[in-house]
Amino acid sequence: MFPFVFNLFSGNRPKNTCFLGWGLRCLLLAGGLTGCEKEVDIEVPGHTPKLAVQYNLNTEAPKQNMYIGRSQSVLATDDLWRNGLVKDAAITITDGGGTLRQSFAFVPLEYNKEIGNYKPTNEFTPEPGQQYSLTVSAPGFETIEGKLTMPAQVPVASASFVPDSKNDGYNYVGLLRIQFNDLANQQDYYRLHVRLVDDAEQLIGNFYSVEDNDDIFGEEVEKIELSKVFDDGWAKQGVITFSDKVGAYIGSGLSPKYIEITLQHLTPDLYLYERSKSNYQEDNPFAEPLNLHSNIRNGYGNFGGITTTKYRIPL
Rank of each mutant, 00 (worst) to 15 (best):
F6S: 02
L20H: 05
W22Q: 12
W22F: 11
G23Q: 07
L24A: 04
R25W: 11
L29D: 04
T34S: 15
C36V: 09
K38C: 13
T48F: 15
N58L: 01
Q64D: 05
L75M: 07
L75Q: 00
D78F: 12
W81C: 11
R82K: 15
G84P: 05
A90K: 04
T94S: 03
G96N: 01
L100W: 07
R101S: 00
A105K: 13
F106S: 00
F106T: 06
L109V: 14
Y111A: 08
Y111M: 07
T121D: 05
P126L: 00
E127A: 05
E127Y: 01
P128F: 01
Q130F: 03
I144R: 10
E145Y: 05
G146V: 04
P151G: 02
N167I: 02
N171F: 06
R177H: 13
L183H: 10
D198K: 00
D199E: 12
D199W: 09
I204M: 15
F207V: 03
D214I: 10
D214W: 05
D215R: 14
E222S: 10
A235F: 13
Q237N: 15
I240L: 08
V246M: 04
P256C: 00
T262R: 06
T262Y: 10
L263H: 12
N298A: 13
I313E: 11
P314L: 05
